[in-house]
Design a protein around this nucleic acid. Structure first.
Length: 906
RNA sequence: GCGGAGGUUGCCGAGCCAGGUUAAAGGCGACAGACUCAAGAUCUGUUUCCGUAGGGUUUCGCCGGUUCAAAUCCGGCCCUCCGCACCA
């Protein structure tokens, strides 16, 4: 067992991962997303960080000056939310955190720490420290000198500077915006706050709320299908439910009481005046906008007062609910059809019959049928001639048009509803509220998009198809709310009631790594970091004389930044694509000069566990530190590197892990058994050397294009198989391994650094393998040697196949190589000079043509090679083996180039 | 629906961009053998079907096309997965 901790300590003490700025030396900066510090990490998280470390270590062995920095994300609301829950004593949360903490401490100490978690900043700082420990245990080659968090003041100054820059380019906007909102808490809610919010997502839906004018007030029905307004026959209310009269912008309207509570939070001038007796609604007539039809109101129990406005306008021609409700209550009404479509199966009548729907209580069937009908009409439907200005339009067109017209004329307003009924985890109802003064970053600016596209074109994407994907994302992105009313983070510089939202504050933070220590010093001297200083460091602007007290520090920062930044590779995962990564790209374009632009993105696939998405609630979140402790860091790293391609999903499971462990043990066993042996290498050892360097060449090619898996499968498993071949061929593994051991250890060290360090020190030298540079050794590849081994293989296979067919044990085998005349015949045939073949050989042409494609003239003497391997053949086939020079026509089997005749005697 | 990825031999998973050397890498599983008192581990071989001579045969979601030649190129269809926003 390798003492991994020993090497981690040794690396730390020797400070080998803390590179100096060396002007002229090519550098490589690799980053991964900084972890959010609300808990300990599971095996899923580890993939990205480990891959980042493998890249960092690989680039080091290729001679780059490598910077792999790390920080911690602390801003946002989840840490707050968890802290609140712990303070409230929420059993689930307390249990989760007890489990986290008990990995690091024992006994009474756990309770003490849990107690401290009632303050959010303690959670953040505790898990920042814990994660440093986890990462160290994984053998990551992180330069911890540049660690910082998104909540610290020096970084906050930078974020504010960044926002002022964005604002100066007019990319910051303010406006109204619908958000999910807790009624009891009177506060915005995120996915984490909603019960089952991670499993069943809640989104905001936009309804068109249409006003139907009556005598003294309007009645409001909200619909997602405003184009059906021409087919309205009546209105529905639920007599069991409470309705209220409200005042909205000096206009009296009636909606359900539940709905009024929502509207109150969506409109400024809105107040509830009085209760309304549903009976009075039924007695009155209302006017449909646009058509001017007078319609009646009826009762139906299917109307949900807590959905929409609690009033439904009825379009029986195109709505199954309405159709069934009318039939069931026996109301005598004329159905109006306003949308035509080709397949009559989709008429409400046929759908209702076909699905056996008889009553409005068949809610499941009704919902399913409704969904099918809406979808079908939306894509296939056209507005009929009775639809005024909408006539002849497709449904989507008509919908947009009528919605615009109704809003314009004041006959309708937008009403927001949640996509499903939802509650917060503490049980408060979740509705949609409209924030009036929400701050946005406006990513829709066409110039900005254009520059961003061009940056995307310049960047490297691994896998490549994500480049196309990123172009799409840049096109698609619009305004993004960038501030919230609560949470940890930096205050918005132009409105300090707002905290910058946690993804918006972390878009170009990677540029801060190289300078964070100097930013802290500047802040210490001046109390804050002014824009003039940041302009100097990040933009190269002149700095006024009043900043002379920090000039030399700022110059140092500027120099470090110029050397290290842009980030050559950022390793992340798929979920970041449509948020963090597009912000990362666009904010670089907007804020920083071109010389600091990012070089590339490596986007990893998801990690699932035992076939399911990893989730706390699913109980399949395997803790990363536990895995490291139970198996070893090297085993986990090997798992990440070899179990799956970077773009494919990894399924964490015990079976695959066992395979990886066996692979790891094989490597260790080869390295453990090794004893230095300087004997002169024989044929097979020389072959091995040649094969190794050819493998190493492919390894480098693969790694340079970030095909980590195939690179390491090669350099591990191919090399081990070749070593076994050396053994099988009677060669010396020690001699063979000795020829390549240095380069093998260096190349392996990116994935299993601890083991490599151990054997490097044992067999090679007391330097660190982790910072050695690889020597490819093209001159050590002997192509002919490789070819001749492959030839021996193919002869072996042929013999084996024959033996398989005859199913008898051979008493002797004779292998006959071809003669000059066979070679000659082949040469002439290859050059299309068949007619020049000597007369006496012509009778062999048919046989030759038949097997021609399996033949090849070798670059070596077949006889000599076979002769050298005579003993080997004899051993594996356990019989006498003779090598002879054959002659065309001498026996019933002919020898051809690359395909000696094989005679088996039993 | 929009955008992206994909459907390969018992399973997982390469190959497909640059068509032929592909019955199709590698791993797992299964079977046989070696080692062992035994089990495990390890090693060797087999793993579409047929075959007493290195051969033949049928296969890469479905249908069709291009080509001397297609898992690979083109068209259509069916199916699966991921993202679609204010959430880290």
């Amino acid at each position: 067992m390798i003492d991994e901790g020993k090497w981690q300590k040794a690396w730390m003490e020797a400070r080998i991962f803390e590179p100096a700025v060396i002007p002229g030396k090519k550098k490589f900066m690799v980053t991964v997303p900084w972890p959010y510090t609300n808990g300990s990490l599971h095996v899923g998280h580890g993939r990205t960080y480990t891959t980042g470390d493998i890249v960092a270590r690989y680039k080091r062995m290729r001679g780059f000056n490598v910077l792999y920095p790390m920080g911690f994300h602390q801003s946002g609301t989840p840490i707050h939310a968890f802290s609140d829950k712990i303070a409230r004593g929420d059993p689930g949360t307390v249990e989760t955190y007890r489990a986290y903490v008990s990995q690091y401490v024992e006994g009474e100490k756990i309770n003490e720490i849990l107690e401290s978690f009632k303050k959010p900043e303690n959670i953040a700082s505790y898990f920042s420290k814990a994660t440093v420990n986890d990462f160290t245990s994984l053998g990551f080659s992180i330069d911890w000198r540049f660690k910082f968090t998104s909540a610290e003041p020096a970084y906050g100054d930078f974020v504010q500077w960044q926002f002022r820059r964005l604002n100066s380019r007019d990319y910051i906007k303010q406006g109204s915006y619908p958000i999910l909102y807790s009624m009891d808490d009177e506060n915005a809610v995120g996915e984490d706050d909603i019960a089952d919010g991670d499993i069943d997502k809640v989104s905001v839906e936009e309804f068109t709320a249409v006003k139907f004018k009556g005598e003294s007030y309007s009645i409001v029905a909200a619909s997602v299908r405003p184009e059906t307004i021409f087919g309205i026959t009546n209105l529905w209310v639920n007599m069991e439910a409470p309705y209220v009269l409200c005042l909205m912008d000096d206009e009296k309207i009636v909606v359900s009481k539940a709905s009024a509570e929502k509207l109150r939070r969506q409109h400024i001038n809105f107040s509830i005046l009085d209760d309304v007796d549903p009976k009075s609604l039924i007695e009155e007539r209302f006017k449909v906008p646009v058509t001017g039809d007078e319609i009646m109101v009826y009762h139906s129990s299917f109307v949900d007062p807590d959905n929409g406005t609690g009033i439904v306008y009825s379009v029986p021609g195109h709505s199954i609910w309405d159709y069934v409700a009318i039939k069931e209550s026996g109301i005598d009404l004329h159905m109006k059809k306003v949308i035509s479509f080709p397949d009559k199966q989709y008429s409400v009548e046929n759908l209702t019959n076909a699905r056996g729907i008889t009553s409005i209580s068949d809610t499941e069937k009704l919902s399913a049928a409704t969904q099918d009908l809406y979808k079908y009409e939306f894509y296939q439907g056209r507005m009929m001639d009775n639809c005024g200005s909408l006539s002849g339009m497709s449904v989507p067109e008509a919908r947009e048009k009528i919605k615009g017209e109704l809003l314009e004329s004041g006959d309708a307003f937008i009403f927001y509803e949640t996509s499903r009924k939802a509650q917060t985890r503490s049980g408060s109802k979740v509705i949609v509220a409209v924030l009036r003064d929400q701050w946005f970053i406006d990513y829709s600016n066409p110039e900005w998009k254009k520059e961003s596209h061009s940056l995307v074109d310049r960047m490297l994407f691994v896998p490549a198809f994500y480049k196309e994907n990123m172009h799409e994302t840049v096109e698609w992105i619009r305004e993004r709310p960038c501030a919230r009313r609560r949470g940890i983070g930096t205050k918005l510089p132009f409105d300090d009631r707002w905290v910058i939202e946690s993804l918006s504050d972390s878009t170009i933070y990677t540029s801060v790594y190289p300078v964070i220590d100097n930013l802290r010093k500047i802040r210490e001297i001046r109390g804050k970091i002014d824009d003039q200083v940041l302009d100097f460091i990040f933009l190269g602007a002149d700095m006024p004389p009043e900043y002379d007290d920090v000039r030399s520090i700022s110059e140092k920062a500027r120099n470090d930044l110029l050397y290290w930044y842009g980030c050559d590779l950022r390793v992340t995962s798929i979920p970041h694509l449509s948020n963090h990564l597009v912000f990362y790209i666009m904010n670089h374009v907007a804020v920083l000069p071109k010389r600091f632009e990012p070089g590339g993105l490596m986007i990893l696939g998801l990690v699932v566990s035992r076939g399911a998405k990893i989730g706390k609630s699913k109980g399949n979140a395997v803790n990363l530190l536990q895995v490291t402790k139970k198996y070893s860091a090297d085993v986990y790293r090997l798992y990440v590197a070899t179990v799956s391609d970077i773009n494919s999903q990894i399924d964490w499971n015990e079976e695959d892990l066992q395979t990886v462990i066996r692979g790891y043990e094989s490597i260790i066993s080869f390295l453990e058994r090794y004893r230095k042996d300087d004997s002169l290498p024989g044929h097979i050892e020389t072959w091995f050397e040649s094969k190794f360097y050819s493998t190493l060449e492919k390894f480098i090619q693969d790694m340079d294009s970030y095909s980590v898996r195939s690179a390491y499968v090669r350099i591990i498993f191919d090399v081990m198989n070749d070593l076994r071949r050396v053994e099988r061929r009677g060669g010396s593994v020690n001699v063979a391994l000795g020829l390549v051991l240095k380069e093998w250890l260096i190349s392996l060290s990116a994935v299993i650094p601890h083991a490599c360090e151990e054997y490097w020190h044992r067999y090679i030298s007391d330097t660190f393998v982790s910072i050695q540079v690889l020597s490819p050794g093209k001159d050590r590849i002997d192509g002919i040697l490789l070819e001749s081994e492959a030839y021996v293989d193919s002869v072996t296979e042929d013999i084996r196949e024959i033996l398989n067919v005859i199913r008898k044990k051979p008493s002797s085998i004779i292998i006959e190589t071809c003669d000059e005349s066979a070679r000659n015949l082949m040469k002439l045939a290859d050059e299309n000079r068949l007619s020049e073949i000597p007369q006496e050989l012509k009778r062999y042409i048919p046989e030759f043509m038949k097997i021609r494609r399996t033949l090849r003239i070798m670059n070596f003497d077949e006889y000599t090679v076979l002769e050298e391997n005579q003993e080997f053949f004899s051993r594996i086939f356990d019989c006498k083996v003779q090598i002879r020079k054959g002659m065309l026509g001498r026996s019933n089997k002919n020898s051809w180039p690359g395909r000696p005749a094989i005679h088996v005697e039993t």
